[in-house]
């Protein structure tokens, strides 16, 4: 499914958070949103998802302008947002329909994918931060959504798990040809995953730059090309000296 944003802006109580954001995502495209904290990345994702319908401008899903929540949208929030009264497995299968055994089978498969097959019966209070986030990732991926919106999905995870889950995401993308919009602070992650990186800047945030990456997947992490793109991104953020993106 394709996505099209036209002049999207959002004002909270007289304070503009983002303005004039326009981009399109073709079916199966992976778009990265990059920018410093508070420049409106989460706000844009919420507008696309339909959770927030008070934005200015227009958003079209598959060519149809709408402000409602779409059935085919999956969302990984910046926080885990697990239901504390459900077990890990029940949390994962929360959005699934169908018979119980079917749901559990699918849920267990995805728990295995995120490395939590031994924790299916635990309750959220028994999980570490990274485990909880992985459960949330499994919950969003298990419905195999056609549009996936991810808000810093991997930022709470160690480097190794992070890479595994990035590959899991790419697997799902390959199987279902999902259109993905991912917010991230991690430039390596953005260059590894995305077809296009959109850099937001300022308060209110607006699009500063778009960088396309045509390198075919699977990409080699740390290849020269990706390193060059990273430098370009850092430069456009005015950070190429310190090489840190302040969160």
């Amino acid at each position: 499914m394709s996505l099209e944003l036209k002049n999207v802006g959002r004002t909270f109580a007289d304070k503009q958070a983002v303005r004039d954001v326009s981009f399109t995502a073709k079916q199966g495209e992976i778009i990265g949103l990059l920018g410093t904290s508070g420049c409106g990345k989460s706000t844009i994702l919420r507008a696309i998802s339909g959770l927030d319908s008070e934005y200015d401008g227009e958003i079209a899903v598959n060519g149809k302008v709408t402000r409602d929540i779409q059935e085919e949208v999956g969302f990984i929030f910046q926080e885990p947002r697990l239901f504390p009264w459900l077990t890990v497995l029940d949390n994962v299968t929360f959005g699934l329909k169908g018979s119980k055994s079917e749901k559990e089978k699918l849920g267990k498969a995805y728990l295995e994918n995120v490395g939590l097959n031994d924790s299916a019966h635990l309750f959220p209070k028994q999980l570490s931060g990274g485990m909880a986030q992985r459960v949330a990732i499994a919950r969003a991926l298990v419905t195999s959504p056609e549009i996936l919106l991810l808000d810093e999905p991997f930022s709470a995870l160690d480097a190794f798990t992070k890479m595994q889950l990035q590959d899991l995401l790419l697997n799902i993308w390959k199987t279902y040809q999902s259109t993905i919009v991912i917010v991230t602070h991690d430039i390596d992650e953005a260059t590894y995953l995305c077809d296009r990186i959109i850099i937001l800047r300022g308060q209110p945030g607006k699009i500063d730059k778009e960088i396309g990456i045509s390198e075919p997947r699977p990409r080699a992490r740390g290849s020269m090309l990706l390193a060059d793109i990273k430098t370009e991104i850092l430069e456009s953020l005015g950070l190429n000296r310190t090489e840190v993106l302040v969160k």
Partner: peptide
């Protein structure tokens, strides 16, 4: 509100929102 949003993203109707969340 954050938990209710998870329900909404999963397309629960009002009745399901009440009973399940």
């Amino acid at each position: 509100r954050k938990l209710i949003e998870v329900g909404k993203i999963n397309k629960l109707n009002s009745f399901q929102l009440v009973t399940r969340i």
